[in-house]
């Protein structure tokens, strides 16, 4: 039981990760896939952030009387990763817009059909 509760952050991460992954695989709608991709990435961000917490640690801002800080480095890393994620999402959405223009649909199976009926 301790194992389960003690690692609750991991359970959240794993749940999110699988949910996102499943969405990417199972959905035929290109926008939904990108949503899934976002959930998938966010789960990893959470993995990093929760990992950086130190028991009893305060926020990593130097102040009087605080000895124990959480590790600030993962936050910084994840800031970078979030930027990357935003860029990926925007590029993906831009592609979806272009696909919509070119095919008139954003459903994967319909696109597939259009390509093969040429």
């Amino acid at each position: 039981m301790d194992f389960i509760i003690g690692h609750y952050n991991y359970w959240v991460v794993i749940f999110l990760m699988m949910a996102g992954f499943y969405t990417i695989i199972s959905r035929g709608n290109l926008v939904k896939k990108i949503v899934g991709l976002n959930i998938f990435q966010v789960s990893v961000f959470m993995l990093y952030i929760t990992m950086s917490t130190v028991h009893g640690g305060a926020a990593p801002i130097i102040s009087e009387g605080v000895e124990n800080y959480s590790n600030p480095l993962p936050h910084v890393l994840i800031l970078t990763a979030i930027v990357v994620g935003v860029a990926t999402t925007s590029l993906g959405l831009a592609l979806v817009v272009r696909i919509k223009e070119a095919y008139g649909t954003i459903e994967e199976d319909e696109i597939h059909e259009l390509d093969h009926s040429l």
Binding site: L30, K33, L95, I99, A102
Partner: peptide, 12 residues
């Protein structure tokens, strides 16, 4: 136009 879908596929 397949370039768009293959770029999307590659992106994912």
């Amino acid at each position: 136009r397949q370039a768009l879908t293959s770029a999307y596929q590659y992106l994912i």
